[in-house]
């Protein structure tokens, strides 16, 4: 269970998250939607431990641990996974080396034996097949020269390998063709389980046809301004965000009536 309480975060003195509250239960999938620049990626990065953002107030409790007290790598080892909106290119480090180092760091932490080269290859090849990635991507530098869609698949591959307890997917559907979207959605659905929670950030209700969320939230100007079931996504698709007033708050009547 993830409990975000009154979270405030800033970058270079500029407030971005301004009192965000959100609870995601075990086994639940929550979708977060919202206009560009509303703070969705900031929330994702703060959860993952990016220290260029300063948390100025609030707390995040994750199954009884104070998430914000852990450095990024420990959060990842404890089972938090962020699929980046913009995966980073790392020239000179092969994807194979990177994936193995990541998987083994997580396995060490969980008291599992580290994979040797053979076991790792067998495992990673099976997972790559599932997300439709050719083997050559193992031997290329991490994300370097990957197309937008290939980068997103590489994120889903990492998620599958790391078997997180909490996965945050930041626009993993952006830039995907319709076939890739299905593959990515299948990858996510395969991981759905009663112990695993997911936060899926997206601009398109289309994704939610494949990954059916338990709840949908609207983030605006650093706060959740509306929450609802999956029908909220359809409504947003039809009407856009025009109903959010200039202060970033949903018209009181609308939010009161529908959430």
């Amino acid at each position: 269970m993830l409990k975000i309480n009154n979270l405030h975060a800033a970058v270079d003195g500029k407030a971005i998250l301004m009192g965000l509250n959100l609870e995601v239960g075990s086994g639940e999938v929550h979708a977060i939607m919202g206009p560009n620049g509303s703070g969705k990626s900031t929330l994702a990065q703060v959860l993952a431990g990016r220290d260029s953002f300063t948390v100025t107030d609030g707390s995040v409790d994750w199954d009884g641990t104070d998430l914000l007290a852990l450095p990024a790598e420990e959060r990842a080892r404890a089972g938090l996974f962020l699929a980046f909106q913009y995966p980073v290119e790392i020239p000179g480090v092969s994807n194979a080396y990177f994936l193995k180092a990541a998987v083994n760091a997580v396995r060490r932490h969980r008291g599992l034996p580290e994979y040797d080269a053979m076991d790792f290859l067998a495992r990673v090849k099976a997972e790559m097949k599932a997300v439709g990635m050719k083997e050559e991507f193992l031997y290329r530098s991490v994300n370097e020269g990957f197309s937008g869609g290939e980068k997103k698949r590489n994120e889903v591959l990492q998620m599958a390998l790391l078997e997180p307890r909490l996965a945050v997917l930041d626009e993993t559907d952006s830039g995907l063709d319709i076939d890739a979207l299905k593959i990515v959605a299948e990858g996510v659905n395969r991981l759905r389980s009663p112990e695993r929670s997911m936060i899926v950030i997206t601009h398109y209700q289309r994704l939610l046809d494949y990954i059916v969320p338990d709840k949908v939230h609207v983030l605006s100007q650093g706060r959740i301004v509306r929450s609802g079931g999956r029908e909220l996504a359809l409504e947003l698709e039809a009407h856009g965000y025009g109903w959010i007033d200039a202060d970033g708050k949903a018209a009181a009547a609308a939010s009161g009536a529908r959430s």
């Binding site: 959060r75 790392i90 000179g92 480090v93 990177f98 990541a102 760091a105 932490h109 790391l162």
Partner: peptide, 20 residues
């Protein structure tokens, strides 16, 4: 940050990027 977000400790991540 990308490497750390995958569980790789900061020292190793630095060394890896330096090597690369």
């Amino acid at each position: 940050f990308y490497l750390r977000a995958r569980g790789i400790d900061t020292d190793h991540a630095r060394q890896l990027l330096t090597y690369a």
